[in-house]
Design a protein around this nucleic acid. Sequence first.
DNA 1: AAGTGGTCTAGACCACTAT
DNA 2: TAGTGGTCTAGACCACTTC
Lengths: 242, 242
Amino acid sequence: MITRNPSLTDQVKAHIKEQIVNDEFEDGRIPPEASLAEDLGVSRTTIRDALGKLEHEGAIYRKQGAGTFVNEAGLQIKSRLEEIWSYEQVLEDHGYKPVVKVLTDEVLPVNEDTAAALHLEDGADVLVIEKLLMENSTPVVLTRNRIPATLLEVTDRKRKNLPIYEYLEEYCGTRLSYYVSEIVPVSFDADLAKKLGVKKGTLGLSFIEVGFDQNNEAVVHATSYFRDDLLRFRLIRRKAGA
Amino acid sequence: MITRNPSLTDQVKAHIKEQIVNDEFEDGRIPPEASLAEDLGVSRTTIRDALGKLEHEGAIYRKQGAGTFVNEAGLQIKSRLEEIWSYEQVLEDHGYKPVVKVLTDEVLPVNEDTAAALHLEDGADVLVIEKLLMENSTPVVLTRNRIPATLLEVTDRKRKNLPIYEYLEEYCGTRLSYYVSEIVPVSFDADLAKKLGVKKGTLGLSFIEVGFDQNNEAVVHATSYFRDDLLRFRLIRRKAGA
DNA sequence: AAGTGGTCTAGACCACTAT
DNA sequence: TAGTGGTCTAGACCACTTC
């Protein structure tokens, strides 16, 4: 039943998560780690790793000496900002069925900001992909991704409407590892407002982000704009080092 | 030299972190886990836990089969949103010496939002503390914290200018465990603008947060406003479950 | 092939909570 | 005092990178 890959830990995590969402634990109390280990036939370390991940994502909480419990409040957060991996997924988490429209798809000389973010020379080229994510016909998110042209493979006929992490894996031979994101409040200018289908001057959020691959190289510079009336971001803040 | 409490893991983490910031590793390469374990006289598990925390906070990155390396880019993030524990600390991380001014400090009947956030009855009382955090005489952050009156201890003469997590520990016998925060772009109204020393209509960020204690009870409802020209928030985004 | 990080085990002892 | 989660150890084997 339980085999390798995904790891034992992830299987245990998924198993417990399923029981949590199905409300199978009496009074929201999760069995002791020792029992879980015996029942599932794995070591307590594996159980603890799985519970640690569930705790980190807010699904459970633990009290030393007392036990482990389901976190009802934490379960209700749909998308946690620090664990977002594609805005397409965010829309799905909010119950939308996202439609992707590619507005721009060109290889251009870098501008200053992108050159600095990706450590490129002044005259270098980047592929600029501007996409609009919509729920049915309502625009929700506008994203601009910039990828160094040197990463592009020669074959064209590429599906620019993929989530950017998939595009990078599929056509650039690189795998995103993490983003560093800066959060900026914006008032949409005429161009953005028109694309997002709101009035000029409407308030929204913007993320300015740099994506790094498994070798810790900056591989994508992204700027995204969100309609605050349709999408709110939440996250869990914890004490550093905990 | 190395003893309990703080944990071995945290001591190892601090030790390695210090060597990182002092640039003591050749080519940004951190020694193999086995060497570290032997050198420091601890098990590899302890080393791995410490490295795991450093990786999580962006100080290092690891490549399976290759090694562990210093993450220069990650080291430059001063405050990571998901690990912020007090806005006083954020100002210090940005090189400011924060001055705290308590604007309001009253016990009042709850409003609807706070009652919902803290699961209080309609007529219940809350202590409302409004504070302005300033760099010298320049306002940077305005926070409003609301704490259920039932948590307050009878003694008065309380230092309302403490960071809220310290206030809760000191005077309410409760310890904050985590916050759930919602990020909202705002245009400051006349009142906020005046308090923050900017023009009405200036753009800024607002966080709407609920703090939970070690028993997973909601103990504080906070609303904070930030001057975007003086403070920018960054965070690291990773794939969920990683 | 050698070396590195990733996963997993089995067990010991400690710190804290409940009763 | 019994039971729970928290920390730490020692060691095995696997997956991947590098040469």
